[in-house]
Write a protein that binds this DNA or RNA. Structure first.
Lengths: 158, 158
DNA sequence: CTATCCTGGACATCTAATATCCAGGATATG
DNA sequence: CATATCCTGGATATTAGATGTCCAGGATAG
């Protein structure tokens, strides 16, 4: 899985603690010492997916597009890593005995079904975890996290 | 995920229908028109993982090392694709504010925990599906599959 | 002894992930 | 309006991993 997923999740949690404020890609990158241009690519993907909104120009930057309770970890995985399953059925049964050339073996093949089923449970787990859930759990473990985050945003070179 | 996982799973199902018989890599590859040398690499990985046994020389080949009821889809995924999670926590929190250099953020980080949890449900699903389960389901849909497989093994050029 | 076939390492190729750069457009501010 | 800031998106370079091939060596059946 793309490493940008981790960056994006942490960035979204941090943005949830800076509501109404646009944070530049530069600051978000400096927060974890990440390459600015590359993180920017991930932020653009999140924006295209409707998870973030962006504003150009001075005072511009990124912020969450909606309530963090309505942004799931799955939303972020799909935005950054794409919608494809980890296991991609290549329909090798089409090369086997008695194959039906018109059949869709991604649907018929029992192995494909089993892998797809496991993937669905994975996705269900991620769909049930929101950025707000994560943020709340972080606060429970470290109540000063939101303040620390806001302070760091304020102190980082734009 | 490595495409060899799909090849390995189908090959194991087919081997479950040829008990006691050693099948060469060449035949297993020809079955689905796969590259022999590369499939052989996957078969070797399965052998090292204790899922297959191999015999060198004439009449040699591969067969299942144990009852197909005791070979799970997870066993095969781990053997071919390795034990690592899809999401690999890079501990970017170590670069954040108030980081503890000695902490293991793969364990502490809430995001890492959430991703790990989803991965565990995925693995649990795969661990609960055996090659015997898959084979039985294939037979239910196509009762002649075992015979077809044995015939194809017999007819393919060694 | 010989033909067969697995073993494992070396090597080549291709794709995707990672990363950088820049021209262009949007916008806040003076 | 002029300017500095900052997102957008495409082009490009680099690297790692996946994919695939080849061969020398060893095991074994006949």
């Amino acid at each position: 899985m793309n490493e940008g997923v981790e960056w994006a999740m942490h960035s979204c949690v941090n943005l949830s603690w800076a509501p109404g404020e646009a944070v530049t890609a530069k600051r978000l990158a400096a927060f974890y010492n990440l390459p600015t241009a590359y993180l920017n690519k991930q932020l653009q993907a999140l924006t295209r997916a409707g998870i973030l909104t962006s504003v150009s120009g001075p005072k511009g930057g990124f912020q969450l597009a909606r309530d963090p309770r309505d942004i799931s970890l799955l939303d972020i995985v799909v935005a950054i890593d794409g919608p494809d399953d980890a296991f991609r059925c290549m329909e090798i049964l089409k090369e086997g005995p008695g194959a039906d050339a018109r059949a869709d073996y991604t649907k018929i093949c029992v192995i494909s079904q089993a892998m797809r089923g496991a993937e669905l449970t994975y996705r269900r787990e991620l769909a049930n975890r929101s950025i707000a859930d994560i943020a709340a759990e972080v606060v429970r473990l470290n109540p000063s996290a939101p303040d620390n985050t806001r302070n760091r945003f304020a102190n980082l070179k734009s």
